[in-house]
């Protein structure tokens, strides 16, 4: 009994220091399950190509949302920014702006959305939940108005291959995956290895203490708002390049899926806790469930049920584990 208590304590401690581990374990479990249920199709090259082709888009949004949540704020407008940036790029290139310049301007537009989110939230001291809920509608509306309701054409001359072409052995990966991997690596280095990352965790973990220790909390939060929006816009752009059509409606509902993915990956709603790896695992889990259910010939309408259940489970498990950790200490 004592031994069991000791093991439990050790496990909980590991979990507290690495909140993404539960997600990793679940990922392994689901992989095995789907692999069996689909008679080996799940891990086949063709199927992996599909999953890994979609992952960068959801993954980048989740990384941004998770970083923002870690610093103690929310962004519900990511789904709208996801559409605004590619639509702006399509409109700009159609009116003769060179591709590279249009990309930079598009990133700038996404960054401005984040800046406005942060500026309003911090200046008027209102919950970012509200500010960004407003921006969700404003940015979506702007996107639809800009296009006049019809998706603009995406010129086939554009060098979108740097994001969409298949690369690597057997063409399992798209180039977008390399962009995603590179950005994820940088995000990981920043969050867990840099002083800025330390400030982000401190700001979300306990705002007053961080401020009293001289952390530039205002600038830290602004930076996270801008990172989050910019990643969302970039992710939407990759998706549009893959699909070939800048629909003004893309990314609808993505904000909540990204929050769910971040939470499933161990990010705390209350801020201060979370990792980049966790965000990726969360996004991957959702992709796995989406794909695995189809392969296992389960009615696809169970997808949202599974994501919802997992989200609640993750939060319940987190709060239970933290309470238990406090009790046994």
């Amino acid at each position: 009994m004592i031994e069991f208590g000791e093991t439990l304590r050790k496990l909980i401690r590991i979990y507290l220091e690495k909140p993404e581990l539960a997600g990793v374990a679940l990922l392994v479990l689901l992989t095995l399950l789907f692999q069996l249920r689909s008679n080996g199709v799940f891990l086949s090259a063709g199927n992996l190509r599909g999953i890994l082709g979609l992952l960068p888009e959801a993954g980048l949004v989740t990384i941004g949302v998770a970083i923002l949540m870690i610093c103690g704020e929310f962004d519900l407008s990511v789904g709208s920014t996801f559409a605004l940036m590619p639509v702006s790029i399509a409109l700009m290139t159609n009116s003769g702006v060179p591709f590279m310049l249009a990309m930079l301007l598009g990133l700038g537009i996404a960054a401005v959305v984040g800046f406005v989110n942060g500026f309003l939230t911090l200046t008027f001291n209102i919950p970012s939940f509200i500010t960004t809920l407003g921006m969700l509608f404003i940015v979506r509306s702007l996107t639809v108005v800009l296009t006049g309701g019809f998706p603009p054409l995406l010129s086939s001359e554009l060098p979108v291959g740097v994001f969409t072409q298949f690369v690597g052995p057997g063409g399992v990966l798209r180039a977008s995956f390399l962009w995603f991997a590179g950005i994820a690596l940088i995000a990981w280095a920043v969050l867990s290895g840099s002083n800025l990352g330390n400030w982000i965790q401190a700001t979300g973990g306990f705002f007053d203490a961080a401020a009293a220790l001289g952390v530039p909390v205002w600038r830290v939060k602004m930076t996270c708002f801008v990172i989050c929006s910019t990643l969302a816009g970039f992710a939407g752009t990759i998706q549009v390049f893959r699909l070939g059509s800048p629909l003004p409606s893309i990314g609808d509902g993505l904000e909540l899926q990204a929050v769910a993915a971040a939470v499933i990956g161990g990010t705390a709603l209350t801020g201060g806790i979370g990792t980049v790896l966790g965000a990726i695992v969360g996004a991957l889990l959702i992709r796995f469930i989406d794909n695995g259910l189809v392969l296992s010939q389960v009615d696809a309408n169970w997808f949202k049920f599974a994501v919802g259940g997992l989200t609640i489970l993750a939060v319940v498990a987190n709060s239970w584990l933290r309470q238990t950790a406090r009790r046994i200490n």
Binding site: G204, G205, L213, G214, I273
Partner: peptide, 16 residues
């Protein structure tokens, strides 16, 4: 409010 409860001792000592 001197310390950030969600961070390690090590990180807390050097915040900022």
């Amino acid at each position: 409010n001197s310390m950030v409860p969600t961070m390690s001792i090590c990180r807390n000592l050097f915040v900022g």
